[in-house]
């Protein structure tokens, strides 16, 4: 948790950072038609950012950040999501999703209740069924070619 953060300054710097990133990645050879609008937008974004920075120094809006609940759980959940997304490309949708959901459920549940082996075993089956259910709807009914991996 961060107490009394100067959110104007933070927002302003993020905006400025984005403006600079976009500005310096403009391709020199690109024709005017393709870039006139983005250029104008970058300038407007930079202007708003500057105003926010000025306000941050003069009359800042202050706020506590990350002050609700467990930040560790948020970070781990985020990590799970990204691992899941990347794993789909390698393990295939089915395997990656079963693993990710099972692991996430187990991890998140520790906040609320005690776990034992039999509960986990039941959960694993629930998760497999759940993923299989969606997998079938998407591949068979909606014809979405979900990524295949090591097994199928």
């Amino acid at each position: 948790m961060i107490r009394n953060a100067n959110t104007d300054l933070l927002a302003g710097s993020i905006g400025m950072g984005l403006s600079l990133t976009f500005w310096f990645s403009i391709d020199r050879e690109i024709m005017r038609l393709s870039i006139m609008f983005p250029k104008a937008m970058i300038l407007i974004m930079a202007l708003i950012s500057v105003l926010l920075l000025i306000k941050g120094f003069m009359k800042a809006e202050r706020q506590n950040l990350f002050d609700v609940g467990s930040n560790l759980r948020v970070a781990v959940t985020g990590l799970f999501f990204f691992t899941w997304g990347v794993a789909i490309a390698y393990l295939g949708f089915f395997v990656a999703s079963v693993a990710a959901i099972f692991a996430m459920t187990g991890y998140l549940a520790t906040a609320r209740r005690q776990l034992n082996l039999s509960v986990l075993a039941i959960w694993l089956f629930i998760v497999i069924g759940e993923v299989a259910f969606f997998y079938l709807i998407f591949t068979q009914l909606l014809h979405v070619p979900l990524p295949e991996g090591i097994f199928f």
């Binding site: 899941w84 789909i88 459920t105 991890y107 549940a109 969606f134 979405v144």
Partner: peptide, 16 residues
Amino acid sequence: TPYYFLVPTIGLATIL
């Protein structure tokens, strides 16, 4: 549905 099932399940729907 308890939250520890809901979070990954909504995540699944979202990813799909």
